[in-house]
């Protein structure tokens, strides 16, 4: 009798070509899948645009009042806040802040067992299509709010060439952190019968502490520091947006990227550990 495990043998990847092939195939599948949801993409973009207008006007009023009392709103000027809001509305779709319940649904229905039979680690098996999805969102849901915002308002353009590649890296890290966070929240379904509460908590924290409702630096400094260092949420929107609007000098931007990378590493380690524990306790009821 051999040793029986719950999972299939994992694919051994021998060289770079094989790894690239795996990335391409699974990534393309995510891209293709989401490019068929055309109505939903249009609808989501319209909604992001509406919120973009409301939040821009509120932020412009804040900037206006701050100038009237002779200062800046937490170090942002009006044009920076405009860019902050519209790029933020675009990034919601890229990182997919809310609404991903696929893993939790599959755990509840038992379909998750087929993920374990695939020759790819489940974390990677979900991550790669998600990167494809993010690439599609970058071409659609990110571009439209930026264009609308640029047409309707005076936007801040980065002054330093180095900001653009740093923003690109920051967005990639944001997608990774957000994916890992969503994966962990969904994986709570291995232990909880009803994951709605956990998912709701994620949605609130991502919105409030992620910098969507207001820039985290609007908070008193001690609170902002605690949120940056103590939670992964600023990595979702706040940090990419801070990098984009050059809120900090280059050294500060690099520091923020480092913080994001740290959170990405921590959360992915947690994902792998949680997945290992979950595979040990998963019991799929027959049916």
């Amino acid at each position: 009798m051999g040793f029986i495990t719950a999972t299939a043998d994992r694919l051994t990847i021998r060289n770079f070509t094989e790894a690239a092939g795996l990335f391409r195939t699974l990534g393309a599948s995510g891209f293709r899948r989401f490019s068929t949801y055309r109505q939903a993409t249009v609808a989501a973009t319209i909604t992001n645009t509406m919120f973009g207008f409301v939040r821009t006007y509120v932020m412009l009023a804040v900037a206006g009042s701050a100038v009237a009392v002779g200062g800046q709103a937490a170090g942002y000027d009006a044009a920076q806040l405009v860019t902050y809001v519209w790029a933020g509305q675009g990034l919601i779709g890229v990182v997919a802040m809310w609404g991903w319940t696929e893993l939790a649904d599959r755990i509840r229905s038992g379909d998750v067992v087929t993920d374990l039979l695939r020759p790819v680690h489940p974390v990677l098996g979900y991550l790669l299509p998600d990167l494809g999805r993010a690439a599609y969102a970058l071409l659609t849901r990110f571009v439209v709010p930026i264009v609308v915002g640029a047409l309707a308002f005076d936007m801040y353009l980065p002054q330093r060439a180095a900001t653009y590649p740093m923003f690109a890296v920051s967005v990639l890290l944001a997608v990774l952190v957000c994916f890992a966070g969503r994966f962990l929240v969904n994986a709570a379904g291995y232990w909880l019968l009803d994951t709605r509460g956990v998912l709701m908590a994620w949605a609130v924290c991502a919105g409030v502490l992620g910098g969507l409702y207001f820039p985290i630096r609007f908070l008193p400094e001690w609170a902002a520091t605690a949120v940056y260092l103590g939670t992964p949420f600023p990595s979702l929107l706040q940090i990419p947006l801070d990098v984009l609007v050059e809120r900090d000098p280059p050294a500060g931007q690099l520091g923020l990227l480092g913080l994001q990378a740290l959170w990405a590493g921590l959360l992915f380690t947690a994902c792998v550990l949680v997945q290992r524990r979950a595979e040990r306790r998963l019991v799929v009821q027959g049916g």
Binding site: V58, A61, V62, S65, A66, A68, V69, A73, A74, R196, G197, M200, A201, V204, G207, V208, Y213, F214, F218, L219, P220
Partner: peptide, 27 residues
Amino acid sequence: LDLLSNVVFLGADLLTVLVVFHRVPVL
């Protein structure tokens, strides 16, 4: 949990207003 999270959601909107006014006295 559902009841509570609905309270929290309103709290999030309220927090936004309070944080904005933490930065400026008049909007």
